[in-house]
Amino acid sequence: MPVFPSVEWFDAVSRSFNSDEANRTAGGGIADAGVGIIFEDQVFLLNFAGYECEKASVIQRSDLENTDFYLEMHPDDWIEMLINIQQNGTADMNYTLNTLDLDSEDGLAKSATDDQYRLDKFFRFNQTIQFFFDASSDVETEFDREITPA
């Protein structure tokens, strides 16, 4: 069972996301973006190209400057979001990415270069990124800790 977060876990989610053609319609579709993911001191890069998430890899924090934007939350909030997705099949109304972004003091989507054009890709491809994390409901996931919901 893959552990969140890990390349193995992101690969499993990518397989589920990439294989579901429904993710290409209804506001999904091609999305070219490098998306960073920060979970404590672990940093990952997701490469979205065309209709798919093509690759997940571990990167250095300094490499975030090469991403279009990155998503960073308190580790407990990451886990809470993913549990919510697993319970509902998709994120419910309180756990969509945009809601998490606006409804938190620090925000969720950030830019390492302060380039709003690249950060705006979070909005441009919002449904695709949402479909991606929603696809994690198909992936049995292990977490490295237990959390108390906020």
Binding site: Q60, R61, S62, D63, L64, E65, E72, M73, H74, D76, D77, E80, L100, L102, D103, S104, E105, D106, K110, A112, D114, A150
Partner: peptide, 22 residues
């Protein structure tokens, strides 16, 4: 090398999610 490449801009670690700060 990884230490050398640290971005100049540092952000504080994220806090636990809570409602929008008003």
């Amino acid at each position: 090398e990884s230490e050398e490449k640290q971005p100049t801009k540092t952000t504080p670690p994220p806090r636990r999610r809570r409602n929008l700060k008003i």
